[in-house]
Design a protein around this nucleic acid. Sequence first.
DNA 1: ACAGGATCCTGGGGGC
DNA 2: TGCCCCCAGGATCCTG
Length: 286
Amino acid sequence: MPELPEVETVVRDLRPLLVGRRVVRVSAGHQRLRQPWRPEWAARLKGRRFEAVTRRGKWIVLELDSGARLVVHLGMTGQLTVAAPGEAVLDHTHLVFGLDDKHELRYRDIRRFGGATLFASSADVEAFFLDSGLGPEPFTLDPGVWCDALAATSRQIKAVLLDQTVVAGVGNIYADEALFDAKLHPTRRANELTRPEADRLRKAVASVLTYAIEKRGSTIRNYVGGSGLAGGYQDEFRAYGRRGEPCRRCRTPLEVLRVGGRASHYCPSCQPSAISCQQAGRPADS
DNA sequence: ACAGGATCCTGGGGGC
DNA sequence: TGCCCCCAGGATCCTG
């Protein structure tokens, strides 16, 4: 579910509520998460104080004063929120961390595709990210590195955007939004993009994500920020979820096709396919 | 190397 | 109202 803008919003919401707070109690449910919780982590958290809340790609990193790091991934339906004292515990709440101000940090996840893992140190977290091949953040993505990555593969550009080892944090919504912004068809081959197209896409990814963060991300079904507030970017979609609706640039009805198993929304007029691209770039009667 | 499908899960919506 | 099928902000694993 949540992509970079949603995760960033959670992090920004949680920061003032968590930093300086001490963990006084930990309880975990019995249902297995994608990242399984280990009971012995509770003792390592109790009495520790949160010192910082950061993000890397779609990962949330909660830094403890012991040097330990609680790393959370929201999967498709994860919610990491701080609840006020007495607030009802919703179904599918799997982890509860009691805080010294009587509030609770809660992890809720309907589909259980996410979870939380405790690492002993920031070095261990870095090693984990390195091992998993997590790519660079989109805002600091080096243009040359990006172009080299595209040149190295003939995969469809939409699939490359979703690949967390190429660039971290982009998911299905913002991949479609960025491709629309850059006027690129989702099935274009990465290594067939021109340098200007590649640059356009890199900038489109950054600008779409930046704007979405300003709007606190998108709430379609389950997403809420760290204080329980929904996002607002779902009202700004120009491609995602707009099948059949008029393109905001040219009024052509948007279409949807599946790329790498994911629905991909695009404007057939503004985002010409590889074939019509070739035709367009060729002299009229050759 | 890459596409495509299945898998992990639950819930909501549409069609009948 | 109920049932069945399909779909969903992710990621990984396997096959062809």
